Simulated assay, not measured.
Amino acid sequence: MIVTTFQTSLRTANLDDLDEITDLHTQARTAYYQAGGHSETELTSPEGRSSRREMWMRAVQDDTKTVLCAVREGEMVGILAMGPPLDPDMDAASAAQLYQIHVRAGRWGQGIGSQLHAAFVRFLRDASLTAGVLEAWERNSRAQAFYARHGWMPDGHHRPGPCDANYVRLRLDVGPSA
């Protein structure tokens, strides 16, 4: 999949992207977890980075998942991971999960996250799915506001997260494509 708008191209990730994806993910998650009270040391440790790189490698290689990279002026500025729902109470015949959207700090507010989000909505419609689900850390107010602007609503499910704060599951209902 390749989509280009406003100087930003979306393309399917490959194994050559792993280090750059891992670095972008580490930078983005450090920004929101640190703002929520997590220590930077825990977030940027070599062990944590290695674990994130392994997770991204599995996602890129998994035929049931899609990982997209947003590239602007030769720089990876965002990533999106999506696929079947992880929770057993969600029906994969009607819903998919947005696992992660991350935009490089310094590129926030430039429409990159919205472009990645639009790719997820296209994914839902192309697969004739009627809903998307995701989890957002309850202390990540930036993500909460972003998803609310795009029509996501809490569905009442949550699970424990770091720093005694939950991950909250959000749902987006989409109609059939026109």
Score class of each variant (00 low, 15 high):
residue 121 V to G: 02
residue 133 V to W: 03
residue 133 V to N: 07
residue 148 A to N: 04
residue 3 V to K: 14
residue 91 D to V: 12
residue 56 W to F: 08
residue 79 I to A: 13
residue 31 A to T: 08
residue 42 E to M: 09
residue 47 E to P: 01
residue 150 H to I: 00
residue 77 V to E: 03
residue 33 Y to V: 04
residue 55 M to H: 15
residue 73 E to Y: 08
residue 32 Y to F: 10
residue 127 A to E: 11
residue 4 T to A: 06
residue 130 T to D: 01
residue 87 D to V: 07
residue 47 E to N: 12
residue 32 Y to K: 06
residue 117 H to I: 04
residue 149 R to T: 06
residue 177 S to Y: 08
residue 106 G to Y: 07
residue 67 V to C: 08
residue 74 G to D: 15
residue 17 D to W: 00
residue 178 A to E: 05
residue 66 T to H: 05
residue 65 K to Q: 14
residue 88 P to T: 08
residue 142 R to K: 13
residue 79 I to V: 15
residue 93 A to Q: 13
residue 109 G to N: 11
residue 64 T to A: 08
residue 9 S to N: 07
residue 72 R to M: 14
residue 141 S to V: 12
residue 52 R to N: 09
residue 166 N to H: 13
residue 96 A to L: 14
residue 65 K to L: 13
residue 110 Q to C: 09
residue 9 S to Q: 11
residue 17 D to S: 00
residue 133 V to M: 07
residue 108 W to D: 10
residue 31 A to F: 04
residue 164 D to W: 04
residue 111 G to M: 01
residue 18 L to W: 01
residue 86 L to P: 09
residue 162 P to M: 13
residue 30 T to V: 02
residue 11 R to W: 02
residue 87 D to W: 09
residue 88 P to G: 04
residue 25 H to Q: 00
residue 3 V to C: 13
residue 86 L to Y: 15
residue 143 A to V: 13
residue 110 Q to I: 01
residue 81 A to R: 07
residue 47 E to Q: 13
residue 5 T to I: 04
residue 114 S to A: 11
residue 35 A to N: 11
residue 159 R to G: 10
residue 51 S to L: 15
residue 164 D to H: 09
residue 14 N to D: 09
residue 163 C to W: 08
residue 55 M to L: 14
residue 151 G to S: 02
residue 108 W to F: 13
residue 45 S to Y: 06
residue 76 M to C: 13
residue 131 A to L: 08
residue 126 D to Y: 01
residue 145 A to H: 11
residue 137 W to M: 03
residue 117 H to P: 06
residue 176 P to S: 15
residue 148 A to R: 07
residue 78 G to C: 15
residue 129 L to Y: 03
residue 134 L to H: 12
residue 10 L to G: 05
residue 172 L to E: 04
residue 62 D to G: 01
residue 29 R to P: 00
residue 81 A to F: 03
residue 135 E to G: 10
residue 50 S to I: 12
residue 17 D to C: 00
residue 18 L to D: 02
residue 135 E to T: 10
residue 101 I to M: 04
residue 73 E to Q: 11
residue 123 F to V: 06
